[in-house]
Nucleic acid binder design. Structure first.
Lengths: 146, 146
DNA sequence: TGATATAGGACGCTTTTGGTCGGGTTTCTA
DNA sequence: TAGAAACCCGACCAAAAGCGTCCTATATCA
């Protein structure tokens, strides 16, 4: 339940990968797909969407590829996820129009909206720079889980 | 993205409905389904699952029905959602086994697990008693949104 | 001019979701 | 004690979403 799509996972991985390289360097869809064993065509389309969302800059042609449109600490996980999975709504109740197809006496809408906001805030606070490989603190926590 | 299923919505509504009645009173699946225009058979199965999860107590027979197994401030939204939608995992990366089918150099797992925990905490803090109809504070907020 | 990229539409397979149908069992009550 | 009213539960179906592939077009560079 309430799971990010695999595509959003892929996108986060790819963005993190780009964030690990020095600014301006560009990687091709193939480069990234190979590193993480993601189907190349799938990743290609994800990167295209991230580009259209203004999070990446693309360069066509030989030795082309993608690079971050902004510094890695100025791109949030929320932006990446939203670009791929669409707007964040925890419940079908909450839509872009704010409507609810159930009866008006539905009072669970408002508390759930607050949950929604919390999730959005947490994801917004999480920057690409927080995901980098050389985050030793995260590494240690990770290992301790096994 | 990251949406609760309609069934979880239904379940929350039903639980809230039961929470609004004085303790011990039991409502039938039909009663609740009619009030919120939920397909009766769908709701019936949801209530059965909530019963198996220990959140409801069922009474068969004429004038039977369901009642909360605990006080409304001792049942969290998280429990209801988990009973219906299954365990909460924000990403396909995080499974019950803690495995990850991507490469080991996947460092986004740990930060996402923290997001996961946050969502779980927020939902756990939300009790059925917080969802009740006569929560005037929530009411006011709701109206102010229009 | 050919190789290497991005850009993007069309399709198909699989899983999930939302819902129905039909047949049980339990309990109350007339 | 029969039947009505409720819970219980598996099987099934249709629609939607998710995931991936194929194919073609376009841009850029050596």
């Amino acid at each position: 339940m309430m799971r990010l799509t695999k595509k959003a996972d892929y996108a986060l991985l790819a963005m993190k990968c780009l964030a690990e390289h020095s600014e301006g360097v560009s990687l091709s869809a193939k480069d990234i797909a190979d590193e993480y064993h993601i189907p190349q065509q799938v990743l290609a389309k994800l990167l295209q969407r991230l580009t259209k969302a203004g999070l990446l800059i693309s360069h066509a042609g030989t030795h082309g590829g993608y690079s971050l449109a902004r510094a890695s600490d100025e791109i949030s996980a929320f932006e990446v996820i939203r670009a791929i999975d669409g707007p964040l709504f925890i419940t079908s109740c909450i839509t872009v129009h704010g409507e609810c197809d159930l009866t008006r006496s539905c009072t669970i809408k408002e508390p759930l909206r607050r949950v929604n906001d919390t999730i959005r805030d947490v994801l917004s606070a999480m920057r690409l720079s927080d995901l980098r490989e050389n985050d030793t603190e995260a590494r240690r926590e990770l290992v301790s889980l096994r």
